[in-house]
Structures are given as structure tokens and as C-alpha cells.
Amino acid sequence: MKHANVFLKIFVHLFLIIMSLLCLLPFVMILSVSLTSETGIQANGYSLIPSEFSLEAYQYIFRNPTEVISAYGTTTFVTVVGTLVSVLIMAMLAYPMSRSDFKLKNGLSFFVYFTMLFSGGLVPMYILVTKYLGLKDNILALFLPILISGWNTMLLRMFMASVPVSLIEAANLEGASEFRIFFTIVIPLSKVGIVTIALFQVLTFWNDWYQAMLYIDHGDMTTLQYMLYRVLNKVNLAKEYGGMMATQEKLPNENLRMALCVVAAGPMLVIFPFFQKYFSKGITVGGVKG
């Protein structure tokens, strides 16, 4: 929207700047703590600018670079493959759900939504994945159990429902199959929705540590988030059991906890703008004839 007046513009920017800063400052704090030496934290507490600059936390993490690099590799693979496969499957599922003339529309939507409400819980899932599918220590176990998201499928359905019916009808009259309509009309027209969902899926796979915790017993296969989780979990357990365990094992330093956080989230900051490229307007009905 152009032509907005100056006061409105100032207000809009002010609002967005304040909101953005609220989100940015904690992250800056994390970055700063991760770059502060442990003695600096003890002496001066947390601060927005490192009180005693030090790379010790990062040196510690990368003292054994193979683990981190392989974790990056695993996480990246899982994220890329998981996202591509899941978005395709979800789009294929969401499109019929978005067609008001499809008889099974409501039934299918309920079928999907129901899985958001009910789950069998951890144990049946674990038995399924390890015993019946035999996926223990298999990289597939890192994304297959969480591949499809009911929530995101419903969102995709919503985006696809806004594809003009007239276009689909026109294609119908020309004798195009539903597959053709799906790939040549619906997908391009719901590009923004698909990219949004793809981004959400990227996050799901990137942020997941639970599958790694459950299904990986052996070997070096680990994900970034699981590395981070292991460290944080030690701290939490020590807190839960109060004084009892604290003296039996040394706890990870605070700068290390924060540095792991940065290492785990960092790449996403690069990936995010890549997706934003597709958040653009200007899709008009005229522009999509296949």
C-alpha cells in the first residue's frame, strides 16, 4: 500500500520497531553472554555488551568439531528432506480438502483435525517406530514420525480455499485433470501459503530434539537441538534435585549454554530471508495461466 500518510507511517514503524526490539534484545543478550568469559559473568552478571569478551564457550563447543559438523549435517538433511516431502504431501492432502464440491471434504478435514486432538501417547508411538517399523538409529526416525502436521495441513487448506473457483471451473471445462489443476493452477496460486507452511515445517524439523532423544541410541548421529537439549537438561535436573546432585557433576557454564543456543539457532537467521523472497504480492488472476 502506497499513499499512506506520514503520521500513520511513523506510527506503524514505531509499533513494529518496538515489537522487533522486544524480540531482538533477548537474543542479543544470549549472544553477549555466549561471548563473555565465565569470570566476567560471575563478576558482572548478564549484560547487553560482553563485559569480558571471550570465545571460550565457542572454543569448547568446537574443540571437537566433528561432532558439531556432523550435527549440522544431520539437522540440515532432516530439515531439507523433511520439508520437501512433507510440504508436497500436505499440499496434496489440503487441496481436496479445500474444494467445496469434493464430497469427502468435511470428513477428510475432521480426519486430519482429529489427530491434533488425540494421540496415542509416547509409548505406542515408540513401539510403532522401533518395533514395527524398525527405525531405531535410522535417520528416517528423525523426521518420519513428525513429518505431517495436522495444524499446517489445515492452514494450507485455508490458503488454497482462496484460489478463485472460477479458474478451476475454467480448467475443468478444458478437460484438465485434477492432477494438472493441482500442479499448474493451485500450487502457483497458493505460493505464499505454501512458502509459509514450508517455513513452519523447516522450523519444526530444525527445532526438534525429541526424536533424536527417543530413537537414536548409537553412533554419532545427533542433531543440533539435541546437543543443546542435553546440556540444558543437565542444568534442569540439577535444579530439580536441589543440592543433591549439584556436587556430583560439574554443570555447564552459562556462556556455554548460551553459545549452544546461538550455534543451534544461528543458521536459521540466514535461511529465513531466503523464504521471504516469496512473500510478495502481485499475484493476479491474469498471470497464472499454465
Binding site: 528432506v81 516431502v85 524398525g134 527405525l135 531405531k136 538409529d137 535410522n138 535417520i139 528416517l140 548409537h218
Partner: peptide
């Protein structure tokens, strides 16, 4: 995926 599934535990 097929290849990966092949190298199970």
C-alpha cells in the same frame, strides 16, 4: 528414503 531405510539397526 529407500536406501536409508535399508540400513537399519
Amino acid at each position: 528414503l529407500g536406501v536409508l531405510a535399508g540400513c537399519g539397526g
